[in-house]
Amino acid sequence: MALGLLYLGLTLLGILKIQAQNPPPALHLNPPLYKVPVQPDFQDDQFQGRWYAIAVADNAIRFENLTQLDMYNMIFQLKDNHGYNVTYAVFSEDYCELWRTAFVPNIQPGQYTLENMTSFTGVQSHVFRVITTDYNNFAVIFVKILYKDRIYFESVLLGRGKELDPTLQESFLDFAKSLGLTEDDVIVTYPTGNVQ
């Protein structure tokens, strides 16, 4: 179950669905959005396409006892309203799981909210933000959800390929620490052969 939560936790909506009746305790951290940067001059058309989750940092699941998290991917498809339809693909030796959701633009370029939020019981707010990207190699995203009066957030280091320069991973770890997280709250994914 922990791996299931971990995979679906890539935008924390999975955690919300699976733990809807008894939400997990989250670290009592609440980074204000004004302290989380957004990509300057964000280009939504250049961001679309396939991204691989290289590393994940969040305040809801402690990774200290987890030795491996299989890589998953996210495909961002730009919509006419400049939002995205997003398909998540989670692969393991035993199964492949697809999950779809949609985001609409919110406040500034590079920031989005969950479309049809009212269909997710208990979700009071949901913000997705592109923190930084070069569009061709890497990106860092941040997701913050208020669910049943609890703050859940995560950041994901994305790559267009399955591997990134280790200095990007170090920068990602530094960013996670700036949010109040520790190394136990960050895990690097394992690139499985099935991730397409």
Rank of each mutant, 00 (worst) to 15 (best):
L181C: 09
T182E: 13
Q39R: 11
H82I: 00
L146G: 07
N81A: 01
P24Q: 08
V130H: 02
L8I: 10
D58G: 12
G4A: 11
H28A: 13
V186H: 05
S125L: 04
A176P: 10
A53D: 12
A20R: 13
C96A: 10
Y52E: 08
P32N: 10
E93T: 03
T11F: 01
Y84W: 04
L33P: 01
P105E: 03
A2N: 14
L78A: 00
K144R: 14
L158M: 09
D174E: 15
E93P: 04
Q124T: 02
R129A: 04
Q124I: 00
F63W: 14
Q196E: 10
Q43T: 05
V38T: 06
S92L: 06
N106L: 12
P191V: 08
P24K: 11
F42P: 01
N85K: 08
A55C: 06
E64K: 15
Y72N: 13
I141H: 01
Q77G: 08
N116A: 10
L66E: 12
P24S: 05
L10H: 08
G9Q: 07
D41R: 15
L168F: 12
W51H: 05
L158N: 02
L164T: 08
P166E: 15
A53N: 13
M74I: 10
P37T: 04
Q196V: 14
S171K: 15
G161P: 00
T121R: 14
D94K: 13
F142C: 03
R150T: 11
L78R: 15
A2M: 15
I187P: 08
Y147I: 11
G110A: 09
D41G: 07
E115R: 03
I54A: 03
A55E: 06
S155E: 08
Q111F: 00
T121S: 09
G9V: 12
F128R: 01
I107E: 12
A102K: 01
V188S: 06
D185C: 14
T11G: 00
N81P: 04
Q46F: 01
V104W: 00
R50M: 05
I151G: 01
Y135H: 10
T67V: 09
Y135F: 12
V90G: 07
V36H: 07
I145G: 02
D174H: 15
W99S: 13
F103K: 03
T132S: 11
V36N: 07
R150D: 04
G110K: 11
N65W: 10
A20I: 14
M117H: 02
D45H: 06
V127T: 14
E97I: 15
F142K: 04
H126V: 02
D80K: 13
Q111H: 01
L29I: 14
A26L: 07
Q43P: 00
K162I: 07
N137F: 03
I187R: 05
P23G: 08
N116R: 12
A53E: 13
A20H: 09
V36Q: 11
F42L: 05
F103H: 06
N136T: 11
G83L: 02
C96Q: 14
A2G: 09
R129I: 00
A139F: 13
S92G: 10
K17D: 09
Y72V: 13
H82G: 00
K177F: 11
F103G: 02
D174T: 15
F42Q: 02
F120L: 09
T167G: 01
G49A: 07
F103R: 02
G161R: 13
T133C: 09
P166F: 14
E154V: 03
F138T: 08
Q68C: 14
S178N: 04
P25F: 09
